[in-house]
Nucleic acid binder design. Structure first.
Lengths: 186, 186
DNA sequence: TAACTTCTGAACATGGTGATCAAAAATGAT
DNA sequence: ATCATTTTTGATCACCATGTTCAGAAGTTA
């Protein structure tokens, strides 16, 4: 799956990040393109928004593809690498939440995109690396939840990408309760 | 702070949950009220949306008020109680994310609402109950992140409120790594 | 140059938002 | 019950973003 770099999408991300209600005209201006051209490519405004979300999902998916499908030899290390790879995508993922959530087929895309992670986590659970007293689905959901939290903090300027990745992995694996040593090597 | 039960707000929650782009007219119909009346109370559409968000925040704040400000004698128990209290608010909190996030003053409201939790967590950190190698701000953010994850799962019908609360607390405190016994009593 | 595709600007219809206002309905006080 | 006040209502209007159509310009490929 090739992720193409569309001037319109890039401009839309910029403009909508500042003003979510921005006009298609203003997006067209930012993209250096006619408003008609936008309609040529995305028949409705909602289509454009959906394209933004799908683009974000594809980039997430691309990172997730880096997850090995074999044995979990270096679980923590792999998890950290994936998490680091995801950190830069924060600004793009805003649209996954702002989007008209209705019963769109984004959920299905999510499933696809997160599949490698879900499999990886599921296997780790079977192998005894992750606790088995929680639903596999929750393990995935909780990781994603921390991911969104980290993205928010990064966008808010409260965390750097490296630190954020470390916090996500560390918190997800070990929780926030005080203990002498961390599971993940610093 | 008294949270009033506005027919318009309740109708808006219902209608917008199904179709986020619903017209004010349809909301008015659902509320059994004239469209003009909506404008009398909320001067713009965005105002109405903001009112929904603020309402959700107020309800969250009300639960947070239940956090004791004294010593942390039963940290886990208090955390669980608060988490359980928050679980039913899932559907209302959708608007906190769907909202035109721009530079509205919702962030400030957030700060206010979460203050009791932040203080509570900060104190627990000082007392050695929670790990001190992570920013206090992240401890709060990660909890909220798991909260949103749980709300999503509940709305998706994947979890019940009781189980979801347990997962949030358990995961936040102890993480997902396999260990023999849970920190939180079941 | 010629065939073809994409982009563009203009014009138009549609529909939701927001404002205005006088009449109607509900509320409240005496 | 009467009167005064407030709220609601329906109707009308202007405005603007969306979405459509289309002929011509610009760019591409052969």
């Amino acid at each position: 799956m090739v992720i193409k770099n569309d001037r319109i999408l890039e401009a839309a991300i910029e403009v909508l990040a500042i003003r979510p209600n921005a006009t298609l005209q203003s997006i067209a201006n930012a993209a250096g393109v006619s408003r008609t051209t936008i309609f040529n490519r995305y028949s409705t405004r909602e289509d454009l928004l959906a394209a933004l979300a799908i683009d974000a999902l594809q980039r997430i998916g691309q990172v997730m593809q880096g997850i090995p499908s074999g044995e979990n030899t270096h679980f923590d290390a792999v998890l950290m690498e994936i998490t680091r790879g995801l950190m830069p995508l924060g600004p793009r993922t805003t649209f996954l939440r702002i989007l008209p959530g209705q019963a769109n087929d984004l959920d299905a895309h999510w499933e696809d995109v997160v599949t490698p992670l879900a499999s990886y986590i599921g296997r780790a659970q079977v192998e005894g690396l992750l606790r088995a007293d929680q639903p596999a689905r929750w393990l995935v959901a909780s990781y994603i939840g921390l991911l969104f939290a980290a993205w928010d903090e990064i966008v808010a300027g409260e965390l750097g990408q490296v630190q954020a990745a470390r916090l996500v992995v560390d918190t997800w694996l070990s929780g926030v309760t005080h203990r002498s040593s961390s599971v993940v090597a610093t």
